[in-house]
Amino acid sequence: MKKQEYHPFEDNAGEFQDKLFETRIEAVNLAYKKAPKSEWAKYAERMIHIIFLLLGLITVGCVLLITVYLVISGIPAIREIGPVDFLFGREWASTAAEPRYGILPFILTSIYGTAGAIVIGVPVGFMTAVYLSKLASPKVKSVMQSAVSLLAGIPSVVYGLVGMLVLVPGIRKVFNVPDGASLLAAIIVLAIMILPSIIKMSVTALDAVPKEYEDASLALGATPIETYFKVSVPAAKSGIAAAVVLGVGRAIGEAMAVMMVAGNVPNMPDSLFQSVRFLTTAVSSEMAYSSGLQQQALFSIALVLFLFIMLINAMLNFFLKQEKE
């Protein structure tokens, strides 16, 4: 079928075409000359470049904005309370007649809670990752990877809800304590919540280990399992370290789920069954009704949390850079 629109001229022999060529070139060149000139296009090009530059710098702006806001609003209370009293004070009684603003309980709770989550979550996540990366059939691997993605996607309030209704009563019954809402409950919830980050990142790191390393080990008579743990895992150690650090970041930053299961009383974390308050939940539990110095102290807590996170970010970056090399 011939499409008329693309046949302005009959399909003729080359001679005719050649004769037409010169006149056509002239016509086309004329058309190019008539086409809008590029003076303003250069200007527009420069404008567009600037617009994209600004878009690119948005993230930098946001980080600066967040840092500046947190520092500006976090410093006054620390100054008023005194950095030592604030950071190392063992008592938080913000609404008492003579308010006390010591956040050591929150800091320690966050550290213990995160450490506990790591102690439980990392071995499970790590072993799962090795299995998925090295031993699982492709089908099992893909099903499990979707399961892990699902685990990552479940909202933290849902974890909190299930924790409230399953874990908290469970702890009360099993350990025979008056209230199950405790550091232990928070640790278990956090351990589950950091699992997906650890598994995903470790699998990626383990998958990237060159097959030649493993072949060399196998050829020396090592069993596959020995090879995976003694060759592949050390080769992927930076990536696995990064996965652990990522888990630390997730655990220390989690607020809602912890708020629902940890009991939320500003106690020192003396035992696993103590009802405790984390740095994150310290901010969120009083923010709604706070004012004055109390509110400023909450901002200071956020600043402390932010500093922890920046430290963890720097570590994460360090390990990721190492892995790239």
Binding site: E5, Y6, H7, P8, F9, F21, V28, A31, Y32, A35
Partner: peptide, 19 residues
């Protein structure tokens, strides 16, 4: 290319493309 350099006329474009 022609469009890049500002030619939008359909008839002209058809002709340039064919040539």
């Amino acid at each position: 290319g022609p469009r890049t350099h500002g030619i939008t006329n359909k008839v002209q474009l058809d002709e340039i493309v064919e040539q």
